[in-house]
């Protein structure tokens, strides 16, 4: 029983990371119409920048600075590279571009920080187990769940309550009409891309406190993130969150019974969802049907 709880909790943690990554990816797919293969790369960049800054501004400072810098780099990448893909109806161009960019990020990180894993110090107050029975429930893991939940709520509040957020939601369905209402849709897309990469950077910093830093840490997450988006339904942000939590939890529970299948189970879930409900759990009708 304890083993099952342990694995399920690990799965939940994993799922919150998938959910946060999938949220950003989903925002970018929906408004920028770009499948961002470099999304894992932005996660890595956020984590390493936080690692580098932490000695100067502390863990808490780095927790904010890392994601903000990842968002800033996101704007630069969108302005200089990604925006040239918008006019192209064939998604292969943006796939190639972002896939290439993912490889570049990984190698740049390897060059600057080295290929070896690096430890990321978290405040010792967060590091102790909450109880001896449930030794795996550390303060930091609870903190990660709370931080991701908070970031998710903040994003949804932003999309619901701010004018900019409302324009993003409008643009997801009909960017053309948004532009005829005087909204600078080029700026809207840039900022949206930056919000997506900022969320990836945030996931990176939080993940660095559990795992250690490695140039490949994005690779392990990106495929599962895509699965989360597809399972949740392309175009649905809430679906991405549910998709992420679902596959994380499923992988965790599977680990308890049959560890070898834990990687495969998320793809099985995706296949089943695509067969039974091609639009995904909360996706819009007609997108893939």
């Amino acid at each position: 029983m304890e083993l099952l709880l342990f694995d399920a909790f690990n799965g939940l943690i994993q799922g919150t990371f998938y959910a946060l990554m999938a949220l950003g990816l989903s925002l970018i797919i929906s408004l920028n119409s770009v499948i961002n293969f470099a999304h894992g790369g932005f996660m890595v960049v956020g984590a390493y920048l936080a690692y580098t800054l932490a000695p100067y501004i502390g863990f808490w400072g780095a927790l904010f600075a890392g994601p903000i810098l990842a968002g800033f780099i996101g704007i630069i990448v969108e302005r200089t590279l990604v925006r040239y893909m918008y006019g192209r109806p064939d998604p292969i161009y943006s796939l190639l571009l972002t896939f290439g960019f993912a490889l570049i990020i990984e190698d740049v990180v390897r060059t600057i920080w080295g290929a070896q894993g690096l430890p990321f110090e978290i405040p010792s107050a967060l590091n102790s187990p909450v109880s001896t029975t449930y030794f795996f429930v550390t303060g930091y893991r609870l903190f990660v769940i709370a931080a991701i939940a908070l970031a998710t709520i903040a994003l949804f509040a932003f999309l619901r309550l701010s004018r900019f957020g409302i324009r993003i939601r409008a643009g997801i369905l009909d960017l053309e009409t948004v532009s005829t209402l005087g909204v600078n849709v080029y700026l809207l897309r840039s900022v949206n891309f930056a919000i997506g990469t900022l969320l990836a950077g945030f996931a990176g910093v939080l993940a660095a406190g559990i795992l250690q830093l490695a140039p490949t840490m994005g690779d392990d997450v990106i495929m599962a993130t895509f699965v989360a988006v597809v399972v949740g339904g392309i175009g649905s942000l809430l679906g991405s969150v549910l998709g992420g939590l679902l596959i994380g939890l499923a992988a965790g529970v599977t680990t308890a019974y049959y560890p070898a299948a834990s990687d495969v189970v998320i793809y099985i879930i995706m296949a089943v969802v695509l067969i039974v409900r091609p639009r995904g759990l909360l996706g819009q009708e007609g997108l893939f049907e």
């Binding site: 004018r163 409302i166 939601r169 409008a170 997801i172 009909d174 009409t177 005829t180 209402l181 005087g182």
Partner: peptide, 20 residues
């Protein structure tokens, strides 16, 4: 526009918050 192109996923007030 032709066909109105109301934002279906936005409320009436939200539709009115889109214009600059």
């Amino acid at each position: 526009p032709e066909g109105r192109r109301i934002f279906p996923n936005l409320t009436v007030l939200e539709n009115l918050a889109v214009p600059m």
